[in-house]
């Protein structure tokens, strides 16, 4: 059911996520956009699982676990950089250049 629209919606959400990562400059917003990309892929998996069987749905659980692990580490890293620069704006985070 609704395979085509679900895949299209997933592609649109993924593109919004990519655009957000490329255009926004705030580390937390960037991270939210990456989460949006991951969840767009989850939608694809669930939609495709109707055609191809359970494998796709199981994959979604793995992706959710991985996203949670990434969130834990990612927010900790953002916190660590905030302690140094008092900012999470990527424009202010540029000591590494050369």
């Amino acid at each position: 059911m609704l395979l085509g629209p679900a895949l299209a919606l997933s592609a649109i959400l993924f593109s919004i996520g990519v655009a957000g990562v490329l255009l926004r400059r705030n580390a937390i917003v960037l991270f939210m956009c990456i989460e949006l990309m991951l969840n767009a892929v989850n939608l694809s998996f669930v939609a495709l699982a109707q055609v191809h069987g359970l494998g796709g749905q199981i994959m979604v659980f793995f992706v959710m676990t991985v996203a949670a692990a990434e969130a834990a580490v990612g927010l900790a890293i953002i916190l660590a950089i905030f302690r140094h620069t008092q900012s999470v704006d990527l424009q202010n985070i540029n000591v590494l250049q050369g």
Partner: peptide, 10 residues
């Protein structure tokens, strides 16, 4: 180190 981690993570 913190900046490298942030860049690598994102």
């Amino acid at each position: 180190s913190a900046e490298a981690a942030l860049k690598y993570f994102l």
